[in-house]
Design a protein around this nucleic acid. Sequence first.
DNA 1: GTAGTACCTTTTTTT
DNA 2: AAGGTACTAC
Length: 741
Amino acid sequence: MFTESEDLLAGLNHPQKQAVLHGEGPLLILAGAGSGKTRVITRRIVQLMQNGVRAQSILAITFTNKAAGEMRKRVDSIVPGHRVQISTFHSFGVRLLRQYADRLGLNKDFTIYDQSDRSKLTKIAIEDSGLNAERFTPDTISNSISKAKNQLLSPEKFAQSAKDFFSQSVAQVYPYYEKRLRESNALDFDDLLYWPALALRNDPELRAELDARYRYVMVDEYQDTNTAQYAIARGLSVDYPNLCVVGDPDQSIYKFRGSDIRNILDFERDFPNATVLTLSENYRSTKPILSAADRLISHNTQRKPKPLISMKEGGSPVTQITFDTGAEEANGVAKRIAQQVNSGNRSFRDFAVFVRMNALTRSLESAFSRHRVPFQIVKGMAFFDRKEIRDVLSYLRLLVNSHDNISFMRAVNEPARGIGKVSLDHLKNHAEPREISLLEACGVVEKIPTIKGKAASGLRDFSLLMKGLRELLEHPPHEVIAKTLDASGYREMLRRSTDPEDQERLANIEELVSAARQFQVEDREPNLADFLENISLASDTDAHDANKDSVSVMTLHAAKGLEFPVVYMLAMEQGILPHDRSLENDEELQEERRLAFVGMTRAMHELFLCNARMRDFRGSVVFTAPSMFLGQLPGSEIKVIEEGPSTPMNSMLRGPGKGSQMTQGWKNNQIKAPTVASISPMPVKDGSYSEGMMVKHPAYGKGMITEISGYGAMRRLKIRFQTAGERSFIADKVQLEIIQS
DNA sequence: GTAGTACCTTTTTTT
DNA sequence: AAGGTACTAC
């Protein structure tokens, strides 16, 4: 045992060792970017176990499920078969709520509502409340409710504190929203924290029980916890105050969803006897990168200054490249990456491209295709947002939770069963006063005289369909899904459609079935409910595949916690980064600066900061000014490259020569101009396939690729076969022999 | 009840 | 640019 703990300290610096060896009592680890905090947490978990702490007494909270999985694996490689609980706050919350559902007055089969469910429900709640909501959108209101929950404000408390007109309007809606959630036996994302936090606060017995169960609690990315998460961590650390939090105030980037940087800044006030350790040695980035990032972040006024010490000597300077247009920026980056790979120094997987907004990834797609650069856009959840997937999921959710009225409304007439709005209104009018679910009401549709004809038989069919499918509930998820697709007629509807988009949809729902087939949970046979829960709690980054040899494209938010040898940050322009909506407010501006800081500190060897003089935005061309952050770097150390203007057309469009107006920001500069994007005659390519290519499929024989769409794991090929007609395939999965390009 | 069309907002970031 | 919503015609 002694030698093992020696090993645990191998290669660690002094504060890291102290952190690993820390036993009981509260501990705050201020870990600068790239200072090896994951390593420290992992080793500390192992160290605790080696000192006799039971694995079940340790709870580690990470920011994403992927991070949890990686940490679990790392601990497992040292202590195989350990039973340490490692999860996100949300997963932990769900687990707790399912376990203590009875005690909390919940039904354990609850559905987890996402943003879009939430806004549908809010719409209904607004109607319930009778609020004249012309002035506020459901999204604004539901955002406000979300914030209230993050601050653990119940509808009553929120109403008490509501002073202005907007808050008072929200206060009117909030109780109805809650009522509708309960009626559907659903919880929204915020509830997954809100309920556990309140349970810990209001149920002393339960709190003590959990506190004793989880004697050692560790929270990573503590700077991004919100009030509810804070309350959970706190509640678990009263009798056994062995709370270890790790974070970096300079990397707090989730204020918009309620995270409160004060949680980390005030840790020492909460736990006056806390040990505080600072990890300032950076093992990730070269000196020029770190000093640029350091200089930028030093412009934030509300911060505890802390040193960042690069342990890497040398390194090339940070490069700033200005392009003429957004399209040229995308092209230029793709070209540079292709060159760097071709010269043999790098693989595609060494590169990452960060953007402030998802919309900016679009131009990259075509540029990468054109330069034959393989890439993955890290937005895993996009797949589950597709109409057909949501449709099928609504069937599944309704199977697990028959009260889920939002899912009922979505599934009931898809495919069309002759059930229209009027009949559904009758159904609601029947169900609501009797306090039964819409699906239950559906089962007694004969008793509702106002519904007749096609609608009545359609509703009865639907009720019988769901009854039949319910029998299969405990079968493996992929079986239930396959049966659902058949029995509902959904698959048939798509199959019969002549719309080529529907063939794509068909491929997507088949993909869902195979995703379910591959789905496994650690120690037991998963059921449908597990599968759905997994989907609900997945994050964008969870889909990132670091082993795949492709360029990673993602938002700055998704980049948190990752590192890459070469990083390109795009659209460093006033109005984008910092974002337009932060310009008025200094606190938000500082958060934008932290966001830029997070992006820069992901880079190990090379960092490129890019901007364009104009860019397509929502249909029109917008003139931009360089990001103010570019002016806050150590100018003399930055290498500046000006690209373009490459065509006379561009310089004509560059507008007022002096540029004085261009520095004014974003909104005022919106003007219409002919789009300059040139249409490339090159075929669309993704690594190995291109449009027009002749291929051979093992089952369908010879055919020609007619269309390539999507990206990463979702890349699709449409192939017209000589005999089998046109079909869609997942590019990654399909076995094709290239006959001729 | 459905299909087709015009219009209009959207996202900044996400568990 | 695109997807959802509201409205209209069948």
